[in-house]
Design a protein around this nucleic acid. Sequence first.
DNA 1: TTGAAAGCGCTAACAC
DNA 2: GTGTTAGCGCTTTCAA
Lengths: 339, 339
Amino acid sequence: MTARKATALDVAKVAGVSRSAVSMVLNGNIKGNVSREAQERIRAAARELNYLPNPVAVSLRNQRTATLGIVTDEIVTSPFAGRLVSGATNAALARGYMILVVDTEHIPGRDEPAIDALQHRRVDGLIYATGSLKPYSPTDPFRAQPAALANCFDPQDRLAAVVPDEVTGSRRATELLLQLGHRQIALLGGDDEHAALLREQGYRAAMENAGLSSRDQQVVVTGWDIDQGYQAAESVLQEPDRPTAVLAANDRVATGILLYAASAGIRVPEQLSVVGYDDQQNVAANLVPALTTVALPHAEIGAIAVNRVLDELEGGERRTERVLVPCPLITRQSTAPAA
Amino acid sequence: MTARKATALDVAKVAGVSRSAVSMVLNGNIKGNVSREAQERIRAAARELNYLPNPVAVSLRNQRTATLGIVTDEIVTSPFAGRLVSGATNAALARGYMILVVDTEHIPGRDEPAIDALQHRRVDGLIYATGSLKPYSPTDPFRAQPAALANCFDPQDRLAAVVPDEVTGSRRATELLLQLGHRQIALLGGDDEHAALLREQGYRAAMENAGLSSRDQQVVVTGWDIDQGYQAAESVLQEPDRPTAVLAANDRVATGILLYAASAGIRVPEQLSVVGYDDQQNVAANLVPALTTVALPHAEIGAIAVNRVLDELEGGERRTERVLVPCPLITRQSTAPAA
DNA sequence: TTGAAAGCGCTAACAC
DNA sequence: GTGTTAGCGCTTTCAA
């Protein structure tokens, strides 16, 4: 079973050629150097022996490990953006690379050792990925080798960054509500994090566009979690001329809003439309009622970031612009025409 | 900045010794072969040059990569057990290993290529980890090298497995409810997955123990998601002599129960106590009211599995028993004495 | 057209 | 006590 793996020498012996011929043929470096027949014999022998070059030896020789490193502040640990890592892994796998991930769990000072460890392992490229959208000023190692930012961005744009198009996402969500005839639409939850700012921008833009000035706009900042959504709803839905629709800062906030609405006897979507943000797995689609929400394209972000790094690595030039990935609006049961 | 890294030869030159002396000293293999002074000079030179052995070269030479592979069906992709991977990564890092993860996303047939890819990369050990507790029959590669199962187990116990102690967890949860004076306690949600079976076992054991026979026990099987928790609650809480406490199959089911209770005007915990399972991040602690629940020790499971593999790898003998990791009961606001 | 040889950076057996 | 040497498996230059 665990028979010693075949080496290039074994293949050469079987094919009756030299080790170097094997290497050349299998790497496509035959500058008219190996006869057709020999090539055939080599390929046949390789297939027969199930030969694959030992990646460790190749790495030592080529000074490349076919490995990318991801440093993240919380993606693996937290339940939200795991698909970023799997999107990245799949994109890497498709191009013959593997990924080494280190999660710093937001522990101060762990960034640098993590990057060091990855560099020590001779990764060919680096990605810094954050759980929530935020600015991140890349340290030297990121600027000295192929690298990209995922779900975060360099305020000075010295490094390629892949981020969700939050503004358009929340603008679209607001537009949906407006089209349904809602005029009193409130934005609930969130705080001063970057994503909240952008989502608010999109909301205000759509409202403005519909002729609803800031007097008609209502933003209640409480946070990102269920209980904070509950609080926000509590503070806004008790008044007699309450909003007929709310935009939640994310799906957890929406959950809190739904919880409050249920306890207050407010029927969703008949008396109140609710839109979330994230399309969180096992949450948005399973709430009661199922939640209309804006999806965060985490897998795509991871994949694009990886391809950016690999393009640069494989000879492309360095590009530093930000890529905005669209956030699709997903319509479910929590939204309905205004009464 | 990206100055060429120092090699053992550089260190040897600076210290005025041979390459091999450097290697021996830095690896602690001085069988009385190197003079004290030389040792000092070597260490000093290594420090000065910031020398670290190139792991790629060491791998090629030692036929070991200091890398472990994890194949998982959904841990990275799904939002639940990410801490298993980070627990594993941290445990590995602490012993000088790195981890390569491949998530098969439950796609049939992806297991084998994933394992192949990892083996091709010459990982020193393998871990198979599942998102939810289940039996898993390890394929040959797992039995041919140091390996362990995390959150799953070999029905034939040919391989070490690390799993949560689900039975004790739900027994404790039920006991808490009994101590609070509840007698009508229902178990809601779940299906025929292994975890559900064990959790039911614990529930029934505790009930039995309190003198409540199967006639007093009530199990409603609907599934693991929010909407299914809602359904289960709907079917059980409408009756006049409804339970005064419920055990949810997990925190999402508990969320659904809370949602139904709110809409039905049933106050938690005054009129109904609710206990969850998982202690899901950003959910359990943030529900309204904050959820009493049983924590799933994912990080610990990952760490123990890694240490099992590394122990075997570093000379320990192969052990194949199952390790049961305790599930701590976390008391919050959703439970109260029976009225 | 083919094969020999050097070398990536390291460790360990073996001579000195 | 110390240094030399032979590989680990591969790629690529260079000589035949």
